[in-house]
Design a protein around this nucleic acid. Structure first.
Lengths: 117, 117
DNA sequence: CAGTATCCAAAGGGATACTG
DNA sequence: CAGTATCCCTTTGGATACTG
């Protein structure tokens, strides 16, 4: 405080929040998983395996666990035979919607920009 | 087309755009670099080294190169002695502003959510 | 069906020292 | 000042096979 070279509390808070968000949502698949769940509401493990082309069960399992740890999705075991498991977004995950929409917009504009040069 | 299990073109486009964006902006530091440049307009290498606490010159150099390749920042060598180099955002980088703001909002809400349980 | 186990290659990223 | 070079460890993530 008082020194010119000091960053404001506000800036520091924003940087911390940004770091948090980046860490939480890092990885190749997390956003795509969230997007699929936005579209479909509830999905089984095998459904996600199908729509996320190229993912392996090990990787999908790990990503889902991390999303669950961070309270962005729920995991529900159904009383069927054989057992099925359903994944769905939590209410808190709705906070990621603006991020995903913004990313999609950026991705579209970037692709357009690349093509048109 | 016509099959029920087919995904719409729109969905596929959105998934591709999302993948593109994630790939372009992946990594621990890129968003923080962009945020710093938003705040400061133009920064030198050593300025970024200072504000990005913990980054090493090798890593910073690589991140800056990738951002430049993707036309999100410009690199300008100044006629000073010793030589200095300035980095600044491109116009195209303004498309990332909504993403960054959304991430910050999410990061704040997430932290609040964690604390209050 | 919903994963786990094992193995492995590549990338990410940090520490340190050096250079034009 | 603005990097590069080298070394090295960890993480990510893919391939494949297996299990309750």
């Amino acid at each position: 405080m008082g020194k010119l070279e000091c960053e404001s509390e506000l800036k520091i808070d924003r940087k911390l929040a940004l770091s948090d968000a980046v860490e939480l949502l890092s990885g190749k698949w997390k956003f795509l998983i969230l997007l699929d769940l936005y579209y479909s509401g509830t999905m089984r493990f095998k459904d996600l395996m199908q729509t996320l082309k190229g993912i392996t069960p090990k990787v999908l399992s790990k990503e889902l666990q991390q999303l669950e740890e961070n309270m962005l999705i729920t995991r529900t075991v159904n009383n069927t035979k054989p057992v099925t498991v359903s994944y769905a977004l939590t209410e808190h995950a709705s906070e990621t919607q603006p991020v995903i929409n913004a990313l999609i917009e950026f991705g579209k504009k970037h692709r357009y920009k690349i093509i048109s040069k």
